[in-house]
């Protein structure tokens, strides 16, 4: 009898509280019935009990059947989104490490072997970590059922008119475009994240001997978060281009939103106090790159003073063109 109690306990403890009692009683009835059939009303033996329990099978699986639990980490409903995010993460990771590697080689070419080993080690440790965190995020979403596949999905109810036209050369991205884009963003992230010291005019006296920073070294730390955030958005944007393979209206809208946010952040940042390195010009002179009063000094100084304006103009044109170009190409039949 004790065996039966233990079996019933093993099944019901894995079930929701409010069902336990009912299922336990029903299960006990079932086991009694099965025993009775086997022994024909004779005295029940331990062997008979074991046989019956064996027939019912592993309590774990029986409990599973009662719960109707899904036996997967990430269900088919959100699997597509999961793969999409995973691709973005992996692409970003590959670029970040690749470019970090290149920068380190430029800065210190002699220890290329060390850098290479570092690269391999980083890849081996970071790839599973990134994979794991992404998966964990989605698995948690699945477990708590908080993710509504429809919210997450990029697809609406499908109708035949949604069918994409057979790829048109003009509408498609050349594959290298987003790759170069990601590379560019990842490069900037590495530069900013590693150290703002390298974001400037590089001075070479036989070998690399530091850089004159563009940004104000006193305040750049506080801007770092926003800069990296904007660049991160950029990488997501480029990754989506890479994955979609062609301009779609949704992609254009997303691009427009990302560009608008980036632009707004940059405008606020760049106009903020003490964004640029106030000693930039004098440091250039000190480094012997320019001599005060020369024609070159005048030109550089003029450019430097108008940097804020120039960057804004270029940024507005660039980001605007990005969206317009996409819009035109997505409309092309």
């Amino acid at each position: 009898m004790e065996l039966i109690d233990r079996y019933i306990y093993a099944v019901t403890q894995k079930l929701p509280q409010e069902q336990r009692e009912d299922i336990a009683e029903e299960l006990r009835g079932l086991i009694e019935d099965m025993l009775e059939e086997r022994t024909g009303g004779e005295k029940r033996t331990n062997e008979a009990v074991e046989e019956v329990l064996l027939e019912l099978g592993n309590p774990k699986y029986l409990a599973q059947k009662y719960r109707g639990t899904k036996k997967y980490l990430i269900g088919p409903e959100i699997f597509d989104s999961y793969v999409l995010v995973l691709k973005i993460v992996m692409i970003t990771l590959a670029f970040a490490f690749g470019i970090g590697f290149v920068i380190k080689i430029i800065l210190n070419p002699i220890s290329i072997l060390d850098h290479f080993i570092e690269l391999i080690v980083s890849l081996v440790t970071a790839t599973p970590a990134a994979f794991g965190w992404t998966t964990l995020g989605f698995a948690l979403g699945e477990y708590f059922g908080g993710i509504n596949a429809k919210d997450l999905s990029f697809e609406k109810k499908w109708k035949p008119s949604d069918l994409a036209p057979i790829p048109d050369e003009k509408r498609q991205f050349k594959r290298y475009e987003p790759i170069i884009g990601i590379g560019f963003y990842a490069l900037l992230i590495m530069v900013f994240a590693f150290s703002n010291e390298y974001f400037g005019v590089w001075i070479f006296h036989d070998e690399f001997s530091g850089a004159i920073p563009f940004l104000n070294p006193e305040t750049s730390g506080s801007y770092m978060f926003f800069i990296i955030l904007i660049l991160g958005f950029g990488i997501i944007k480029e990754s989506l281009k890479l994955i979609f393979g062609k301009w779609t209206l949704k992609l254009v809208i997303f691009t427009a939103i990302v560009n608008l946010i980036s632009l707004a952040t940059v405008v606020i940042m760049i106009n903020g106090p003490a964004f640029w390195n106030p000693g930039f010009m004098s440091e250039l002179v000190q480094a012997g790159l320019l001599s005060e009063g020369s024609e070159a000094y005048g030109t550089v100084s003029k450019i430097w003073e108008n940097t804020t304006f120039l960057i804004l103009v270029l940024l507005v044109i660039g980001l605007f063109w990005d969206v317009v170009d996409g819009l035109i190409k997505s409309r092309k039949k």
Partner: peptide, 20 residues
């Protein structure tokens, strides 16, 4: 037993959760 006699074999471990 009823289903079994009529040629439809069902394991109790499948049937009980199904009933619920």
């Amino acid at each position: 037993t009823m289903l079994g006699k009529k040629g439809v074999q069902v394991e109790p471990g499948t049937l009980y959760p199904l009933l619920r």
